[in-house]
Design a protein around this nucleic acid. Structure first.
Length: 432
RNA sequence: GGGGAGAUACUCAAGCGGUCAACGAGGACGGACUGUAACUCCGUUGGGCAACCUUCGCAGGUUCGAAUCCUGCUCUCCCCA
């Protein structure tokens, strides 16, 4: 399977900026292109999923993708998009992060099999930076780029004009390090293309410039637009934090819900960016969705495609099942019984939880006291009574309409209780 | 250095001796509606079942009674030098 890489990205709305002649190059020969990943955490979140998908597109369109983990650059900190100096990570954390990031990327891009000319490669820039002495670096690399050139970059300029704390030499140097990565890959692997988010343009062009001056070669660049949300809030974040690509960090259920909850406008953009469905299918899905938006067929398909890709079909199906139960008006004990404790704990990851002595429930306890004092879910007895008046309290998805006592019949999965105020305010009680 | 203004609940902002747990707006939360949405509508927003208790920068005082008056303290803002 092979297709026109640039064209493909174009209709998907994934091109922000592209260097002249890049498209011609990709159509002419098999190109090695790289994308860098910052080891700022021990996993990647869905913001990086775009970059991973780009690697996949690159490979599927018959080119060779290189994933670069920034073990060296991660020690410095990319100032792009940052208004203040960053804290440095310790070597220990960095090592852990590099490992984690490598693991995640390997799940999506095949580094093992396939034709050698297009087999993906995973590199760590620490491997070639660690032996580089400051003197060598200054002589061999620094000499080719002027400070004037470096200062003209937006990411640097911003820090000179703003009333912030200025910029350390360390961060100022960052673009040279990243630029050198590109040069190194160009020289050792014939890598001619770097891809990244739009905030990486400055760093990438330092690389192409370095390749031009030092190696007398020509290299190319392509950046993707920042993924946005229609309401202007930051993509990939919810109240409970980042959406990670790791089931340990973000449960599959939450992951599925994130995509499912996309607004209509976002879903139309995201289906093109985050799935591999072809143009006709995407357009058809969007059209169908417009006919009957209430069915949310687009969100469902988006959530399905992405969840299956990231977590697999089985996990996706469990997430759907969990969603159906959790968002139905009432849930019977029989329905609850379909889930064991571990699954429920996973589904309710991120929900505040508290441990309560099992005896308290077994002996029976006043509802008001239980919701307020015992669990701390609601702040005061008054609030519980108020909520009761609002008809907003439920236990295990079933509304409670008046004061009653809590007893062992309210326990699900052996030792859990799900308290709710309204739809969104959940609270999990774990009996010990 | 001199003169003036102000500090009220999550935020803004009324109140200027009793009827103030404190108008109003925003936010937040809940309910109805809906597509697990948007919009709209309605309700709640110190504690207590209640009597009542604790709140209006901080500490005192005057009064039967203070967020409201007086004194001191802390902080903020404005004007003149």
């Amino acid at each position: 399977m092979s297709y026109d890489f640039v064209n493909e990205l174009r209709w998907r709305g994934m091109i922000h900026d592209i260097m002249p002649d890049t498209e011609e190059l990709l159509n002419k020969e098999t190109v090695t292109g790289y994308i860098g990943f910052d080891p700022t955490a021990d996993s990647l979140h869905i913001g990086s999923l775009v970059q991973i998908i780009l690697l996949m597109h690159l490979q599927r369109s018959g080119h060779r993708p290189v994933a670069l983990v920034g073990g060296a650059t991660g020690m410095i900190g990319d100032p792009s998009g940052k208004s203040s100096e960053r804290n440095l990570l310790t070597q220990e954390i960095l090592d852990k992060n590099i490992k984690g990031v490598k693991n995640v990327i390997s799940r999506f891009v095949d580094f093992e099999s396939g034709d050698e000319s297009t087999r993906a490669v995973l590199v760590n820039n620490y491997d070639w930076m660690k032996e580089f002495s400051l003197i060598d670096f200054a002589r061999d690399i620094g000499k080719h780029i002027t400070v004037n050139y470096m200062m003209a970059k937006d990411s640097v300029k911003k820090r000179f004009t703003g009333e912030v704390d200025g910029m350390s030499f360390t961060e100022f140097t960052y673009q040279l390090f990243q630029g050198y990565d590109f040069l190194h890959l160009y020289e050792t692997m014939g890598c001619k293309l770097q891809i990244g988010g739009s905030d990486q343009w400055g760093n990438i062009t330092t690389g192409t410039e370095l390749i031009r001056r030092k190696a007398g070669g020509k290299a190319y660049a392509l950046t993707t637009p920042l993924v946005t949300k229609a309401d202007g809030t930051k993509f990939g974040k919810t109240e409970s934090g980042n959406i990670w690509l790791d089931a340990d960090k973000t449960s599959v259920y939450q992951f599925y819900q994130f995509w499912f909850n996309a607004t209509d406008a976002d879903a139309e953009n995201w289906i093109k960016i985050f799935t591999f469905l072809d143009k006709e299918t995407c357009e058809q899905l969007i059209e169908e969705h417009k006919q009957d938006a209430g069915r949310r067929s687009l969100q469902k398909r988006l959530a399905e495609e992405v969840t299956v890709m990231v977590h697999g079909k089985e996990a996706y199906e469990t997430a759907v099942e969990a969603s159906q139960i959790l968002f139905s008006k009432t849930v019977t004990p029989e329905q609850w019984n379909k889930f064991d404790k571990a699954t429920l704990l996973e589904i309710f990851e991120g929900v505040p939880q508290v441990e309560v002595d099992r005896k308290v429930v077994e002996n029976g306890i006043d509802l008001v006291q239980f919701f307020a004092e015992t669990t701390g879910f609601l702040k005061s007895n008054s609030e519980v009574r108020r909520a009761l008046k609002e008809n907003s309290l439920s236990i295990n998805k079933n509304k409670i309409t008046e004061e009653r006592s809590i007893n062992e019949d309210d326990i699900i999965a052996g030792d859990l209780m799900l308290l709710q105020r309204g739809k969104r305010n959940k609270f999990l009680v774990i009996l010990k």
